[in-house]
Design a protein around this nucleic acid. Structure first.
Lengths: 210, 210, 210, 210
DNA sequence: CATGAATGAGGTTTCATTCAT
DNA sequence: TATGAATGAAACCTCATTCAT
């Protein structure tokens, strides 16, 4: 599934980007993640990217367009593994138990998150402030994924592995638990380096919970 | 424990605040929570508070001082319940099992979070961008709480209720799980109203997981 | 009637303008008249007025607001003499013949134009490019004056002094003739100093046609 | 005399203009007339013309060159009818009375103006702001026409049809009257569609004064 | 204490123009 | 010849902050 991400990576990022455009994107990601969208100035991005300020606006009509150009692909990539055709069957045969499914999902999305840490950080930080982002998120996650997961929940409920409560409650709880954990673990805690008194480095441990 | 919060409330918030000062704080909280610190202008806050632009700076030397004046108290209130003297004994007698302790803590901090939603939102949103905030957080949470919790972990480890891994690992996992959940459940999901297709209202359910 | 203009002058211009505001208006009039609205930069106006650029925007939210603040009063002043109550009677007794009325009007508005030359110039130059200006003009000139003049035309038609064609045709012809003349004479020709080979100066001659 | 205009049309406009050049000119005329020279951007012209931004500058070194390329021909065309050799004789035999001459001139130049409305509009709008334009105008109108008209005035003064005042005064008055009228009638009034309550359409009436 | 006019640095964006392709 | 990416100066405008009243 990882290679899935990869192909989409190429499709979305590599598509027809001039050299300077790439530099702009990279610089913007760095600065947005570090200081936040509002607190980052376009002149700063330009300087870091080694281009003239005007160049940014040739490629992205506004500063917000630049934000969207950064954040939209990570949404697309985020949903990719859920879009596999006939999801139900595939999962059915792969994962007898919900726990297996959840484990796999956690693992899979954790990898994704680590690989796209700064971009996801920007997305999570900025989503509350930009209606456009909310809309994008709704389209990608809401309308595309939610209904698939709903079926999935019902499937496992039929198998008696999930209690009989509304699917959206299951979803809400699961989402809060899994993504809450990922966000806290990889995006909030790492800022608090002071906590790491013993082992410093972020060993790419593969255990599910560390 | 709720009344505990309350006393501190008075101590910190009510202490010598002029009428205009209160209006400023309220307006600032509203705007910061809605648009973020950087994207909120002081003139906007002044207008919403019904005071002159200069008045803000009479009370808070800089815009960042205003942010700190808002965010510092919620940190203080957040740690309050952990500061009870002789925490060990108290907890020891109250909670035979870790699960009970965790349940109580989750419940207690959930109440706190709900009561201070906008302010906590601001704190969580802005902490990554302001070294001063990180420092404050470190002082409050890090140095005051962490060592207490460490002892607590060791206490439950001695009782055989927690496996023998470094205390900081236990802390990290627990923190990620509990606060990740709270953040996702109360600060991220509520933005996505679209998800609520069936039951709309946020019934103040008291079950631990909803 | 001249003193009429004057009182309005005070009312509109002098009303509550800070010292710097006046300087800004004066500088803006000068620059707009000389180079046109679009070709004049706010920084230029600020420099000429001896104020910071930000000061302009404290008083006029946008550059266009500044233009309107300059141009709106001259419209108001322009219509003033037509707003005298019971216009019909007054004119009736004053001017037996249309020619007398037209002469008086030409003379009167000529004085006005000369006294407000730069501002009127700006108005005439910019009106084609700004829908807001057109709207203002329509309100002031169109709806207020046109109907009064219509009655006037009918009045003189009854007296047999104007041929029986639609009032708006009379108005259009008269307006074109009188104001076309004034514009050409006082706003276009003076730019062509080369033509004045003999007598240079613009003596404030009072003959009706010179 | 109309066909006169035509030949010059070909001479000036058609001379060696590539397809793209024509499109650029047409787009520029449209935009300049609508928004003014300063408020029109070259990129806008390029887009409207369907050419690359750089293409404009391949043909016209600067934006102002483009303006001149548009405005210079209409000046040339404007003077054309006055340049007929032996003007004096021709006019002498054609028009016994000044009134006839003026009538013919008004009629003739009105046709010209209507046929070239957008370009003349640009010329009239921009002339006050561009010394180069004033210079061009002076060369064309001033030095070429003025002296011819001076003779004409003297001719009619000798015939006793014009009072004995300096020729330049006659010229000024006549110019103001005729061109003021044309400008007001065809370039200012048409912007005020609100005035046309009765007859909407601009019937190409041929009466001298409508 | 409170005000709000004033500031000037800095923000985003536009624009005429150049130049390698 | 035509293109359009790149430029950087300058445009309009915002903002946190100061200070005389």
């Amino acid at each position: 599934m990882t290679d899935h991400d990869f192909k989409i990576d190429e499709l979305v990022d590599g598509e027809e980007l001039t050299d300077k455009q790439k530099k702009i994107i990279i610089s913007a990601i760095e600065s947005f993640a570090e200081k936040g969208y509002s607190a980052t100035s376009t002149s700063e991005i330009a300087k870091k990217a080694g281009v003239a300020e005007g160049t940014i606006f040739r490629h992205y009509k506004t500063k917000k367009d630049l934000l969207l150009a950064i954040v939209a692909p990570v949404m697309a990539k985020f949903v990719a593994p859920f879009i596999i055709k006939d999801l139900k069957k595939v999962l059915d045969q792969d994962y007898e138990h919900v726990e297996d499914f959840l484990k796999a999902m956690l693992e899979n999305r954790r990898e994704f998150l680590i690989k796209n840490l700064p971009t996801v950080k920007i997305l999570v930080q900025e989503i509350p402030f930009h209606p456009e982002l909310k809309e994008l998120f709704k389209e990608h996650i809401g309308l595309r994924i939610y209904e698939r997961l709903e079926k999935l929940v019902e499937h496992y409920q039929e198998k008696g592995q999930i209690i009989e409560i509304p699917a959206y409650s299951v979803f809400r709880m699961t989402f809060s638990a899994i993504f809450g954990y990922l966000i806290a673990r990889y995006m909030i805690l790492p800022e608090a380096e002071w906590m790491m008194r013993q082992r410093q480095s972020g060993q790419s441990s593969s255990s599910c919970m560390d």
